[in-house]
C-alpha cells in the first residue's frame, strides 16, 4: 500500500494542461511528489471499514435548500467590469479564443 504509486508525471502534466497551467519540468517533478504525498495521506481513509455506512454526496445533514424566484439587484455594469483588467464596450476582454 505504502509503496504503490498513485500518481505519475504524465497525470500531473495532463491535469496542468486541463487547468491551463504552464509547468516547467522541475515543477512537474516537484508537484508529482507533493501530490503523491497528499494522496497517500488521504488514502489512509481506505483502511476504514465503511461497509455499513450509506454513501453520500454531501457532508451536511441537509437537503432541499432553495431560494424563491425573486429578483435581487445585480451589480452595475461598471462594478462588474471593475474586477477585470480590460474591457471594451461593456464586455470583458479575454485572450482570443477560436469559435
Amino acid at each position: 500500500m505504502k509503496n504503490k504509486k498513485i500518481i505519475n508525471e504524465e497525470v500531473v502534466r495532463s491535469v496542468a494542461s486541463l487547468a491551463r497551467i504552464n509547468l516547467q519540468a522541475a515543477e512537474v517533478k516537484q508537484l508529482t511528489k507533493n501530490l503523491e504525498d497528499i494522496l497517500h495521506y488521504v488514502a489512509k481513509l481506505e483502511q476504514l471499514d465503511v461497509s455499513r455506512i450509506q454513501p453520500t454526496s454531501h457532508v451536511l445533514p441537509l437537503e432541499n435548500v432553495y431560494r424563491e424566484d425573486i429578483v435581487k439587484p445585480s451589480l452595475s455594469q461598471q462594478e462588474a467590469l471593475s474586477i477585470g483588467p480590460y474591457h471594451t464596450k461593456g464586455h470583458f476582454n479575454v485572450p482570443k479564443v477560436i469559435a
Binding site: 480590460y86 471594451t88 464596450k89 464586455h91 470583458f92 476582454n93 485572450p95 482570443k96 479564443v97 477560436i98
Partner: peptide, 12 residues
C-alpha cells in the same frame, strides 16, 4: 470574437 481587436469579448 472580434478580429479587429485581436481578443474575444465576454458578456456574463
Amino acid at each position: 470574437h472580434d478580429d479587429s481587436l485581436g481578443c474575444s469579448l465576454v458578456d456574463y
